[in-house]
């Protein structure tokens, strides 16, 4: 039961918060053990031309989806979003789109910070551990890929 339902979520190694700050109200992990459960990022706006890049889906599939939106879908611009580790892939997709359009497409990148929430659940309910939540920040990128307006 303590096993997270989604093995892909728990196996992201670099996102585990290891720093406990001395100035913050003490995060005492000991002696009670906690299970760290990461909530999904807050629900984001999803227009038809928004693409949220992740690290689970095949890279070529995500690139093809963007190409389809721009060429077949008739969109003048799409928005490629990436969070954390997926920033690299989002940039890669945007640059690949630009390269395959022979430089017609333009990119406009914006960065932001996304607040993520982790749940800390006590392993053993008999011990006096209280369930807690912890917020942390992660970086994100939003790349607008668009055909410039004819001047």
């Amino acid at each position: 039961m303590t096993e997270p339902r989604n093995p892909g979520m728990s196996s992201i190694p670099q996102a585990a918060p290891v720093h406990t700050d001395s100035t913050s109200p003490a995060v005492e992990m000991d002696p009670v053990e906690y299970t760290l459960r990461k909530r999904l990022p807050r629900k984001l706006p999803k227009r038809r031309n928004d693409v949220y890049v992740n690290m689970k889906t095949d890279f070529r599939a995500q690139l093809a989806r963007c190409q389809k939106l721009l060429e077949g879908g008739g969109h003048r611009e799409i928005c490629v979003h990436g969070l954390g580790l997926a920033i690299n892939r989002a940039i890669n997709i945007a640059l690949q789109l630009q390269a395959s359009s022979q430089g017609v497409l333009q990119l406009a990148a914006n960065t932001s910070t996304v607040e993520l929430v982790d749940d800390l659940e006590p392993e053993d309910p008999d011990e006096a551990g209280e369930p807690m939540t912890r917020t942390r920040n992660n970086s994100a990128i939003h790349i607008k890929v668009f055909y410039p307006d004819p001047q």
Binding site: S24, P25, D119, T133
Partner: peptide
């Protein structure tokens, strides 16, 4: 600013029940 960046919320279980996260 530093405080909010490393804030730890001690929320109720009702707010963060595992059913909602699953």
């Amino acid at each position: 600013l530093q405080h909010t960046a490393k804030r730890v919320c001690m929320d109720d279980l009702s707010v963060c029940s595992p059913q909602t996260s699953k």
